[in-house]
């Protein structure tokens, strides 16, 4: 109980309050405390990569052991990860490692870009099938979207002024409202974590 709950809650409370206070104190002691905390965060960040790798291997080896129909993809994922890591670590020329650079530039980059570009097909299809002016609000959204899209193409340069106005005024007003909401949410959640009200990061609860 002490190590699983009380101690983590105490660490979060003390460090949370200390980091909040140090932000407003430009004293060398406060600065040195912050530098120490920064180092800790970077070290823990590096361990998160190790944790991610462990989770990756756990999920995919389990899929391979169960021999389900998609287990071949797990084999590909593990082989790719180990292969890239070995080529990167054992390669002689460091950054100029020919094989590593080419695998990255001619396999990873096109694969990732292709996956993302598929979105445009779905967006176009969804816009045609579902983007209908069913009520006044939907009509306003539709007209605004068409103006902004036209303003973003060469033939629509005559709409540039209107597009900038939409982006700078109505869009900014809405974005600012959302940002203030997010900011208040972050403060509320941080306080709940520091005070031990929100404990889901401990697991379970």
């Amino acid at each position: 109980m002490l190590f699983k709950r009380t101690l983590p809650l105490l660490v979060v409370f003390v460090l949370g309050i200390a980091m909040m206070i140090q932000y407003f104190i430009p004293h060398p002691i406060s600065q040195s405390f912050k530098e120490g905390a920064d180092n800790w965060i970077r070290i823990i960040g590096a361990f998160a990569i190790v944790l991610g790798l462990a989770s990756f291997f756990h999920v995919h080896t389990r899929k391979i052991m169960r021999k389900n129909k998609d287990s071949i993809f797990s084999v590909v994922a593990i082989v790719s990860l180990i292969g890239m890591a070995l080529i990167g670590i054992l390669g002689k020329d460091g950054l100029d490692n020919w094989l590593f650079s080419n695998l990255y530039s001619y396999i990873i980059v096109p694969l990732d870009a292709t996956m993302f570009s598929l979105l445009s097909f779905y967006i176009a299809s969804a816009a045609f099938k579902a983007f209908k002016a069913r009520n006044a609000m939907a009509f306003a959204l539709l007209v605004t979207a068409i103006i902004v899209m036209l303003g973003r193409v060469s033939f629509g340069s005559f709409l540039n002024g209107l597009v900038e106005w939409i982006m700078v005024y109505p869009n900014t007003a809405a974005q600012r409202g959302i940002l203030i909401g997010i900011g208040l949410g972050i403060i509320a959640t941080s306080l709940k974590i520091i005070l031990g009200i929100e404990r889901s990061y401990l697991g379970g609860e």
Binding site: S120, I123, A124, A127, F128, K129, F131, K132, A133, L142, A145, I146, M149, L150, R152, V153, S154, F155
Partner: peptide, 23 residues
Amino acid sequence: AMDAQNAVHIFIIIIVILGNISF
């Protein structure tokens, strides 16, 4: 690449307008 983007934007605008008229 803007040439391709121009063409796609114009195409999407046309199909959205047609989709709405059809609706």
